[in-house]
């Protein structure tokens, strides 16, 4: 499954709820304000563990728009919209955590 999260973890619990419900094969894509959770200081240990397994992505355009491209935590992979589409195709059912 592909889980998208579009809220900052400073503002909402969307990311935490997603992390609570995620199984061993799913990946997370951070979009819109969700990319704030990809920045160093916002990173939870659970998210960095998943990132270390190559299972966390962030949408480049949203990262750039917020001026945080230099602060993205290790192992989080940046994708463009084409990459977003690839993830949807590859991982089947998508769940959005809003």
């Amino acid at each position: 499954m592909l889980h998208t999260v579009n809220k900052s973890s400073f503002e909402r619990n969307s990311l935490q709820s997603c992390l609570n419900a995620i199984d061993d094969t799913s990946v997370i894509l951070l979009i819109e304000d969700g990319v704030i959770s990809a920045a160093n200081n916002a990173n939870s240990s659970m998210l960095s563990d998943l990132a270390a397994q190559g299972r966390v992505y962030a949408l480049q355009g949203d990262v750039d728009a917020r001026g945080i491209s230099s602060k993205i935590a290790d192992n989080i992979k940046l994708v463009d919209y084409a990459g977003f589409v690839d993830l949807v195709v590859e991982h089947g059912t998508a769940v959005s955590w809003v």
């Binding site: 499954m1 609570n20 419900a21 995620i22 199984d23 094969t25 799913s26 059912t93 998508a94 769940v95 959005s96 955590w97 809003v98």
Partner: peptide, 18 residues
């Protein structure tokens, strides 16, 4: 449990969030 829920979710064709 959240673990059971995660299994049920991964069994779905479509998940709609509200």
């Amino acid at each position: 449990s959240n673990a059971e829920l995660s299994k049920i979710m991964s069994d779905q064709d479509v998940c709609l969030s509200f």
